[in-house]
Amino acid sequence: MKALWGEMNGRGRVVLAVAVLLLLLAPTVATRYLVSVLTLIFYFVYVGQAWNLMMGYAGQLSLGHALYVGVGGYVSAALWVHFGIGPWLGVFPAVLLAASFGAAIGWLGFRFGIEGVYFALLTIAFAEFTRIGFDHIDVVGGAGGLFIPYEEARLGEWWNLRGGQLFFYYLAFGLAAIAVLVTALLARSRLGYQWRAVREDEAAARALGIDAFRAKMKAILISSAMTAVGGVFYAFYYNSLFPAQMFEMSRSIELILGPIVGGLGTVFGPVIGAFLLTPLGEILIGVTEALGINAPGAKAVFFGLTLMVIIYLVPTGVWPWLSKTLGLTGRRS
């Protein structure tokens, strides 16, 4: 908590406390729809934060994070469907497998000096490779998908992630809160500074005794493991998994937009990003429907345009600008 507190000044702390309180109380007044939108926002805060650790702090551009979501989701769901192993236990092998993928990609990329766009392509290649692979793995339903059956009797088994909307709301809130806390802690840790050094200038970082390879490996391991937990949540929230849906590049892109728009390498950037983009998507659906443009794609066109405008106007993200304008961080004397 102290690390998080330290991010802000007095005014910022008040705003943060009020926001947390409001979100905790929101389900008592909000409609079911609003609660589901907020749940989705929390989910994107969580996975966005996981990606932010790797890109925002350690400077390693991954465009294949859907891989870890997919692996995490599929492993936990398959264990539950086929062996009745609950996600509270299944999350461990899920995280382990996703982190092994992360380790493999990291090792190949970092050992052989693959950087920047090339590294990003390596991550895409792995995600796409896995997507097509899953299309052909029959145990998990292949391209037809894997479904977690709805069982009335199991409702309320919260430890097996069988609950209603309200349960998932607080679960997602908890995950998001933990992710923010973890980021705040790591950002102020020794590792966090090593990451920044590697991000800014790898040769200079090594000249200061930092083992850049190890620092980057830690980044991808932590990030992939965290993302996999998001995948477990996703699987049990939506109850259906398709390779095309889980691993597609657009899923990777979707989860990195929040941190970039909100502000990379900041603790609250991914939070702001998710709170901006997810509702924007929802509003666009509403507006296009109200205008009578019922065609698929209308919403996404505006979404794409918005992205272009945001990155054109505030390339470093909304949070640095917002916090400065509102005076939420930094000392005021």
Binding site: R196, A197, R199, E200, D201, A203, A204, A207, L208
Partner: peptide, 12 residues
């Protein structure tokens, strides 16, 4: 410890 001929502090 070393410095570089062309300085390279962490700019950001």
């Amino acid at each position: 410890g070393r410095t570089f001929q062309i300085v390279r502090p962490f700019p950001g």
